[in-house]
Amino acid sequence: MDQIAALIIAKYNYWIYVTLMMIGFYAMIGKRNLVKKLIGLNIFQTAIILMFVSAGVKKGAKIPILDKHHVMEHGVNVADIVNPVPHVLMLTAIVVAVSVTGVALAILLRIYREYGTLEEDEILEKLGQ
């Protein structure tokens, strides 16, 4: 029982991220509504971000903003500071996600102008005519 609890504590973040990723991925490929697809895309992206951020966590560590003078004089204990690298990467990833979302929404408006609907099957129906 303790082992299971330990396993849960050790891995639950990753499980949740996989769940979120599945939700997002399903929305992207399974949903017919284009906006839903986009929401799925965003969920997928945040799931990945969650994975990265989880990778950077250290138990009982502090945020990666140091005291300049203290560090210059005494150095720093690495185990006390949260790993900053995933944070840097994920800032970039967030920007990319919002950029893609912006472009996609613009294209959505264009599609709506043209077809008057955002349902994939209805659009295909109109194209078929």
């Binding site: 250290k58 945020i63 949260v82 944070h87």
Partner: peptide, 8 residues
Amino acid sequence: AEMGAVDV
């Protein structure tokens, strides 16, 4: 924020 990733 709770995980320490304040910037993110």
